[in-house]
């Protein structure tokens, strides 16, 4: 069975919202989740442009104003929330690093540690 990290309760993630978790020593989150209806999409908070910088200009603000795309605020790159593909911006054609997220019977949102990849 996977070891997981409890991130929040499902109710803490309103539909069409985004939220960051697991801050580093500088206080910047290292992973984030976008909720679309019943689906949760989790990614490492690292833009593929430089591979070393986080996406949002402000905590938890990962989506554009219309809620259609994930945005990297450094240079305005746009990513599709469901696939993580960059469709506009410096890293066009590259992908955010996806994470495995599960929701338990208790409605806990859990990051499965085996999926953290580069975060380890």
């Amino acid at each position: 069975m996977n070891q997981g990290v409890l991130l929040c309760k499902l109710d803490d993630l309103p539909d069409n919202s985004s939220r960051g978790f697991l801050p580093d020593a500088q206080g910047q989150d290292t992973v984030f989740i976008v909720r679309r209806g019943s689906k949760l999409y989790g990614y490492s908070d690292v833009c593929p442009h430089y591979g070393d910088t986080a996406l949002p200009w402000k905590k938890d603000v990962y989506l554009d104003a219309g809620g259609d795309y994930i945005v990297c605020a450094a240079h305005g790159a746009l990513f599709t929330p469901d696939t993580g593909e960059c469709v506009k911006g410096p890293c066009r054609g590259d992908f955010l690093t996806p994470l495995k997220i599960t929701v338990t019977a208790e409605q806990d949102v859990v990051l499965l540690c085996e999926s953290r990849g580069k975060e380890q």
Binding site: L55, W57, V61, A73
Partner: peptide, 9 residues
């Protein structure tokens, strides 16, 4: 430098 909602730093 700060990231910003202007689509640039």
């Amino acid at each position: 430098y700060f990231k910003s909602p202007f689509g640039c730093n």
